[in-house]
Design a binder for these strands. Structure first.
Lengths: 144, 144
DNA sequence: GGACGATGGTGAGGAGAGCTAAGGATCTGG
DNA sequence: CCAGATCCTTAGCTCTCCTCACCATCGTCC
């Protein structure tokens, strides 16, 4: 085993533990108890990329379609998204945000200062730059 | 809102999504189906820091004590850890690894090459360096 | 020395979040 | 027009973590 390979194995170990602990922390740190992190992620993606089908949404979030169905059902029940039939393809459904969801996302963006953004703000600019790059790399790893 | 604050909010958003997706991917990518990622993390921590009480272990993993109890019970059932009474404090219990756990961790370390280490190896040395720093920063964020 | 709050572990119950397998509706290519 | 592919959904399961409550033990204070 080469030096580099050993280092990579150690990195894999540390990175895995760090990501697990960090994601736990993120889940617990959500502000509004009624809307979970998974729900928020779906809403964010919808806002960023516009209305799309459940399947597309699932692909974006790297989740299986049935999982996303549940999320959409829950969000629809809360009046945060609408389900409208696809204009030409009868199989598909288009998920769109309601004004209430927009408000919620705005409120959440503000409230997020309470923790993650606040914590990030305490870091050095260099550390933030590292995280910014790392986010891109991790997303690449997650999608590959 | 200043420029930096805006950037930080965007970073919070992207980082959150990236970590969520990445951790989902990690969970699915485990090799041995009988031992879950949570179990492995606990075993890894025990190996790295030596025997400790369930409470300490929970603190290390940023988890509540009852959650760690379950993990320990499961691991004991699989013969991977032992529970011995604390020499002086009758309330405490000391969790230690069995030889079987050592073997499992070795096997896991080797098998991990199959995915995460393999993927990391494909990255540039610069990207790995970024992740190495990011792991430290995320752990700091998770613990604070 | 005994009562009493603090600490540590666990039992019970529940919620969130993901998966696979399978079913039903719709589209499309032959 | 039928057969297979595609899309969403239902059903049922697992894993992970939580809170609340309980019990045993420790340390302290009267």
């Amino acid at each position: 085993m080469s030096r580099t390979t050993l280092d990579t194995a150690a990195l894999a170990h540390d990175l895995r533990l760090a990501v697990m602990r960090f994601s736990r922390r993120l889940r617990n740190q959500r502000v509004d108890q009624s809307v979970t992190l998974t729900h928020l992620a779906a809403l964010s993606t919808l806002r960023r990329h516009g209305p799309m089908s459940p399947g597309e949404l699932a692909a974006h979030e790297r989740v299986q379609p049935p999982s996303m169905t549940r999320v959409v059902v829950a969000l629809e029940g809360m009046g945060l998204v609408t389900r409208t039939p696809h204009p030409t393809d009868g199989r598909q459904v288009v998920i769109g945000l309601t004004p209430a969801a927009d408000e919620l996302l705005d409120a959440e963006a503000r409230a997020r200062e309470a923790w993650l953004s606040g914590r990030l703000q305490e870091l050095s600019a260099e550390d933030r730059a590292v995280l910014r790059e790392a986010a891109v790399i991790m997303d690449k790893l997650a999608s590959g």
